[in-house]
Amino acid sequence: MKWLLLGAAVLLTGCAAREPEVRTVRVEVPVQVPCRAPVVSVPVWATDSLKKTDSLELKVRALLAERRQRIGYERVLLAAVAACQ
């Protein structure tokens, strides 16, 4: 019985004297990151300053200019959305 207790004590002291093994483990986990795209401001549209009394030619030119503005604005919006994906 003494030898059994002595053997158990030796085994326990052997485990206590051993230093723990230090390991670095790299774990790759996807983390959601908030989008930091710049705020896209709405341009001043070319037709905002039109009056009912303006000539037809002036109204058509303003509409054509606004169409170009809209296309450019949509491209900027698409670029902001693409930056977040």
Rank of each mutant, 00 (worst) to 15 (best):
L5S: 10
A46E: 15
V81C: 02
L50S: 04
K59E: 07
C15R: 12
A82M: 08
L78N: 05
R61M: 09
W3P: 04
V31F: 04
S41G: 10
C84S: 01
C84P: 00
L58C: 07
A62E: 12
V40T: 00
L77M: 09
G14V: 05
G72A: 13
L11K: 12
L11A: 14
W45H: 12
V81D: 04
R68P: 00
V60A: 14
A62R: 14
E28W: 06
L77Y: 00
V81A: 12
S55I: 06
A65M: 10
Y73S: 01
C84M: 03
A46R: 13
A8L: 15
S55N: 08
W3H: 13
E21T: 08
L64C: 10
K52F: 15
L12Y: 03
L64W: 06
A80Q: 01
A80R: 00
P43K: 07
V27T: 13
L77N: 00
P43F: 10
E57Q: 13
A16N: 06
Y73M: 06
Q69K: 11
V39S: 02
M1Y: 05
K51S: 14
R70Q: 13
R36H: 12
K52M: 14
T13D: 03
Q69N: 11
R68W: 05
R23D: 04
E57P: 00
G72N: 09
T24K: 15
R61T: 07
L4H: 09
V44H: 14
V33R: 15
K59Y: 07
K59W: 04
T47F: 12
V10E: 09
E66I: 06
M1L: 13
V25I: 14
P20K: 09
C35Q: 01
D48Q: 15
L4Q: 15
C84T: 01
A62D: 10
Q85G: 12
D54R: 08
K59V: 02
A8R: 10
K59Q: 10
L63H: 08
L58E: 14
L12Q: 11
A46I: 08
K51L: 08
G72Y: 02
A46G: 09
E19V: 04
R67I: 01
K51A: 11
R36C: 01
S55G: 14
A83C: 03
A17T: 06
D48L: 14
C35D: 00
C15N: 09
Q85H: 10
E19R: 11
A82T: 03
